[in-house]
Design a protein around this nucleic acid. Structure first.
Ligand SMILES: [Mn+2]
Ligand SMILES: [Mn+2]
Ligand SMILES: [Mn+2]
Ligand SMILES: [Mn+2]
Lengths: 218, 218
DNA sequence: TTTATTTTTTAGCCTAGCCTAAAAATTTAA
DNA sequence: TTAAATTTTTAGGCTAGGCTAAAAAATAAA
């Protein structure tokens, strides 16, 4: 139905819209797709003809319901495969993204149905990102950025905002992973840095890090 | 390194050479690839430049050592994924080929290493075809066509020469699968048909079928 | 409210992989 | 050993998905 390139564009636009919700600019898409704006214009015009997005010249693109359906399907596949790689093949969470980028394009509804079952119908991927169901619905959770916590508050790490290998490896060094309990021991107003307790140890965390970690408080 | 199309051509040429060993003709390749001979000429010329095959105008193509390496790697992946689909996701053996055609192109040595281990380092795929090791070596077996058996001889089904869903579903109806014990009760000289014993039942088998089933005698 | 800058689109070109039609080489038949 | 049939290659064209350079529109600055 859709080529790999088309699926990747649709997915990228979905993620961009998740941030701002408005129409997505040509340049923004070119940025995340690592292509030139002129190539993006070509592609969004084709995707508009295919009815997966609405496109207004000089204004931008926004996915139609059909487009959202395609996007969530690809995202569902990506995240299920990541669970497979970590849970079944014992990959580390910083190694799975690139392989999942390939696997997400494999076409077979039956395969995904069975994979989902085989994995125990997981709700979250190894980075704490929610896995949409077959209808494209995400389970809502009340996670917040670690940076929002006040001194003395506790939270459980439930996700990462960015899942680059570099950042994930940094978290490993700090002994932080999904499920880790974190307590804010101190917070520096001036630069937003924090001192946190992880297990029996305490760590210094910059603002940048505190803004890349999702926690759940209860 | 190689595109999907290139990998598919290389794999097809490998399989054609496995039959005859000589140079493979343009038409033969076009046939199995379901493309036109002119497209094949284009592609083999490109693959010759990439050193995966030797090509002599009007004579045909034959894989180099490098080409064989690529082919066996793709075949290894295809068959390992088929094992995964059948053993882990409970697909039936007639459903897995098309999905494996996609999965065989996923690029990650580490993935295949781990998948192989996860599956228990299988030697054969669900159709009885040998899975080459990481160096491209196939385990030799002394299988023969069921049609070679004489009246009274027994054998165990170890493979199918052709694995189209239609044929596999036909075998299901006859209660034949990998590991099934078969005894030749009668053989018709005139048309090569056979009467065989499968479990407690007996079946009539045409020559075409008897020439599509591999058995091992001991 | 002009002018300058930035963003976006258009025009034209490229490669991969396919196609058809025609030419050339090879093989088979007479 | 010529003629006919088949196989293979070449020539030219098409679509997908990129690119650069130039034009046009939108936005920001003066
Ligand atoms: Mn990922
Ligand atoms: Mn993820
Ligand atoms: Mn197969
Ligand atoms: Mn097989």
């Amino acid at each position: 139905m859709f080529t790999y390139a088309e699926e990747n564009y649709i997915k990228a636009i979905f993620h961009l819209q998740a941030q701002s919700d408005k129409e997505v600019s040509t340049n923004a898409i070119a940025d995340v797709m690592e292509t030139k704006p002129s190539s993006v214009t070509d592609m969004v015009q084709k995707l508009a003809e295919k009815k997966v997005l609405a496109y207004r010249k000089y204004k931008g693109a926004s996915l139609t319901e059909q487009g959202r359906k395609v996007a969530t399907s690809v995202i569902r596949k990506h995240r299920l495969w990541e669970v497979f790689l970590v849970d079944k093949l014992n990959f580390h969470w910083d190694e799975v993204h690139d392989i999942a980028e390939q696997l997400e394009h494999i076409q077979s509804d039956e395969l995904i149905k069975r994979l989902d079952k085989f994995l125990g119908n997981p709700d979250f991927d190894p980075h704490g990102d929610p896995i949409p169901d077959a209808n494209g619905n995400f389970k809502k959770t009340e996670k917040k950025l670690l940076s929002k916590l006040k001194k003395g508050q506790r939270g459980v790490c439930v996700g990462v905002k960015e899942s680059s290998p570099e950042f994930l490896q940094f978290l490993d060094k700090k002994n932080i992973s999904i499920g880790t309990k974190i307590k804010v021991l101190g917070k520096e107003f001036f630069d937003g840095s924090m001192v946190i307790e992880v297990g029996k140890n305490q760590s210094f965390i910059s603002k940048k890090i505190a803004e890349s970690l999702y926690v759940q408080t209860n």
